[in-house]
Amino acid sequence: MTQRGLERLKRAMWTLSLSVLAIPFVFPFLWMVSSGFKSATEIFGQPTLIPRVWRWTNFVEVFQYQPFAQQYFNSLYIACLVTVITLVLSSLAGYALARMRFAGAGLLMLFLVSALMVPEEVTIIPNFFLMRWLGLMDTHGPLVLLPVFGPHGVMATFLMRQYFVALPKELEEAGKMDGLSRIGIWWRIALPMSRPALAAVAIITFLFSWNLFLEPLVFVSSLEKFTLPLALSNFTDAYGLPLWHLQLAATSLAVVPILIVYLIAQRQIIESFAMSGVKG
């Protein structure tokens, strides 16, 4: 009896301390959403979690001060594009590295993986001139090309390779017997079997692109071409004054949908990151 009581007390203590620890993880979200409904004055007044006056108009004004809908769409379509291209390229290259025998495969692997150590700050300056030469300044081109071919793309390739290596070969052998070409085997057999890895790459890549900040900051200059992170950091009025309440309303609009998707698919998303981390 006392033994069980002690166990229960211990568990309650654990839960309590975890809950306290969770405060700084949860509070910023609650505060952000609640402040999105407040006036600028109230945000800086006595802190309350429930707004005294609910200003729904903040969420309308967000769209008036910047082409926010356009910026939202930019982020969305760029992230989708990057995700699709990364999926195709990384699974192709990953498959070749895992399954096909060719001279230099090991070296190529080492070569690619070394990219994971290089911060993008190192290559951003020459890339600036490269993009200028390609005529891609102030377009979305760099925001697609750099994530796809930079360290992130390499990480995706590596992740796919690790997954393919661990797959059983029998089905592919059978496919070969049936006369499928290499590309056929990749498309009909290998890809359907690697759904978890593809999902992981898709999730991580989407979020990576969605949250990208340095590249848009450097490569994009017109307001209607901004992506969300850039737009959020730029909520100022005509004179460059920060519009606090609108900034927080816009931040809520940018974060909450992602958060909802995360809450729905949290297991899948967390596993995706676990996969990428352990293997990359």
């Binding site: 949860v26 910023p28 900040f213 959020l232 940018a254 974060v255 958060l259 998303i269 967390i270």
Partner: peptide, 21 residues
Amino acid sequence: TVFFAPVVTSAVAWAIVWKFL
């Protein structure tokens, strides 16, 4: 879920909010 939530949040949003807090 709670402890992982900030990972999926954009660093920009996170920094903006903490700057206020």
